[in-house]
Write a protein that binds this DNA or RNA. Sequence first.
DNA 1: AGTCCACAGGAAGGGCAGGCGA
DNA 2: TCGCCTGCCCTTCCTGTGGACT
Length: 405
Amino acid sequence: MKDIFHELLSSGNIIKNKEVLRPSYIPSFLPHREKQINELASILVSALKGEAPSNVFIYGKTGTGKTAVSTFVGKHLMKKGKEMGAPIHFIYINCEIVDTQYRILQNITNHFIKGWDERIPFTGWPTDEVYSRLINSIDKAKGVTVIVLDEVDKVKGDEVLYNLSRINNDLKEGKASVIGISNDLKFTEFLDPRVKSSLGEENLVFPPYTADELKDILSERAKLAFKENAIEDGVISLCSAKAAQEHGDARRALDLLRVSAEIAERLGDKSVREKHVRMAENKIELDRVREVIRTLPLQSKIVLLSALIGTKEYGSLTTGDLYSIYEELCNRGGYTNLTQRRVADIISELDMMGILNARVISKGRYGRTREIEVPVSNKIKEILEKDESLPDVENYKPKLQSKLL
DNA sequence: AGTCCACAGGAAGGGCAGGCGA
DNA sequence: TCGCCTGCCCTTCCTGTGGACT
């Protein structure tokens, strides 16, 4: 049998270690985050003296190093604790995945339980029972437990945050502190004021990276990730500049660099060039659009399809135009149609996702409406055509009253 | 200056599914 | 297991509005 992997394995002349470019990778050195590392370390240092550190709330947009800094400091804290004989327990929880009160308490508690048969099950126990088991575990483990709740805005309900942020009131032997991380700057506005004050004893803000800072980060990672001379001049600057344009997102910069390298490698090129970055940018954007559209509810897909058909025929549409096409499509597909009010909201949602453009305009005597356009219509058309659930529009040419005037 | 169009978009509430505590 | 609660999606009803037209 022909060795189908041999060629693929030996062909890579660019990438040495792809893991380094993944967002989950924690490097041994975090450029341009010295200030945040020091601030967080100076809050957590009391753990080494056996005291409970203040609870911390960390804000910052995606890809500003919040998670990296927290886990970095946590790793060093545990190491120092070991050296000094001060027991430190560092627990990281991503609340996007673990989002209910029960699951969060269960996860933290299970961290302390070694035997599989003693672990708390996924479901079944009363929540207060899990909570008291957690208290016992932290007390029994002694020392200081630091709990990181990443993407804390995804947690359902305030109660678990309230309990955890005041957990020291219930603890006897052990101590605990909570680090909440969020990229939603307005998150605390909607919190119970009691939670807000106890969780946010200390606040850290992570500013976006500048293009120059991103360049340093990428250069550091590129040294580890790529073979020698595999990256041409200008590639790293270009990736940094593109990511800085968005909002200084290091994750995006790393993605762009990684995808560029993958493309270059797949094309059999010897090095990553600027053209690969541009191709990568297109690919990432298309993947994003594809993913967004794929997960859209059926009604939103029909609205999008209506916009697509209408703009193809007439260039741009008003809300009323789109709605009449939408009604026709629902008829053809045998779906019950939503009201215009709801469709107007769906148009706004699609606008927010960046799949279509809808801006409010006034046509004077002829009313106030939204002008709707679909920017990357070819790509969207391609994706929607493959969707089996949508009505057949092969020979449908919309006729709009307003366009006949 | 006033009218009037075609909606925008807020408010309130119904119906439903899923989660949660007893 | 059951009833309650919550969040989500949606409808109905409503007031507000920019600017071409009269």
